[in-house]
């Protein structure tokens, strides 16, 4: 389904963010990517939907090579990947409904987007998705009126309303308190399971990853140093990912 091969990225500043990263995601189970800050987790997700341009390597979604796409074909590929962000990245001055409907932009013309005239079935899907994330009745509120947890739920609805084939989730809980973190992560995992799509979730909180993951990818300095079931995530494996010295502090 998602097939990443020898993905390499060096930023113009010389920061070698990804080093020959290869893995595949099959089936619908969520895959959690852990690793210290700066390990390349965000770069990895952004190279998959090409918000960041990888230097080398290949990304295949259902067999289609993403790295070679341009223009309309690239936008069509992006529609198939729903992204959820660390800072939510809602358009703050727009309403909840406008934010959710932005997930349908890939399917409508500029003229419709300008006048906010989305097809009735898109509006219906947006209402239904808002209900799924527990925000019924919030459609008329402006995004900047919401709490952090509510904003992330809007972010989840925006990604789901794309009807994606995979969710790319970048540190969804870093801007949230521990209780909200858990419920947001639970929501993402449950809704992805309902829609029978996999989620690739970046997270630095190892206990949270342990609680929700079946499979873990460990990233360190841009390279995959662990790829296996959550049961195999021993102290020795964590030391490989986070480095022995900071183990107590970062991974508890």
């Amino acid at each position: 389904m998602l097939e990443v091969t020898a993905l390499d990225k060096t930023y113009p500043g010389g920061d070698h963010a990804l080093r020959a990263v290869s893995f595949t995601v099959e089936g619908n189970d969520p895959v959690f990517v852990i690793g210290p800050s700066g390990a390349g987790k965000s770069t990895l997700l952004r190279c998959i939907n090409r918000l960041v341009e990888p230097d080398r390597g290949s990304v295949r979604l259902d067999g289609e090579e993403i790295t070679a796409l341009e223009g309309a074909a690239l936008r069509a590929a992006r529609r198939k990947m729903g992204m959820i962000f660390q800072e939510f990245n809602l358009v703050e001055r727009l309403t909840v409904m406008e934010n959710v409907l932005s997930g349908r932009l890939g399917y409508v013309t500029l003229w419709r987007a300008w006048r906010r005239r989305f097809p009735p079935e898109d509006v219906e899907a947006a209402f239904a998705t808002l209900a799924r994330v527990g925000l019924e009745g919030f459609e008329g509120k402006r995004a900047d009126e919401l709490s952090g947890g509510q904003r992330q739920r809007v972010g989840i609805a925006r990604a789901l309303v794309q009807r994606p084939k995979i969710l790319l989730v970048d540190e969804p809980t870093s801007s949230l308190d521990p209780r909200t973190s858990e419920s947001v992560l639970r929501l993402i995992v449950d809704l992805a399971a309902e829609d029978r799509i996999p989620a690739l979730v970046n997270i630095h909180d190892v206990p949270l990853a342990r609680a929700f993951a079946r499979r873990i990818l460990g990233l360190r300095e841009g390279a995959i140093v662990y790829d296996g079931p959550v049961e195999g995530l021993t102290d020795e494996a964590l030391a490989r990912i986070y480095g022995g010295a900071v183990l107590g502090e970062d991974a508890r």
């Binding site: 992006r78 358009v91 932005s102 890939g106």
Partner: peptide, 8 residues
């Protein structure tokens, strides 16, 4: 970036 990620 978030709007770009939807395929806009």
């Amino acid at each position: 970036e978030a709007v770009a990620a939807t395929g806009a």
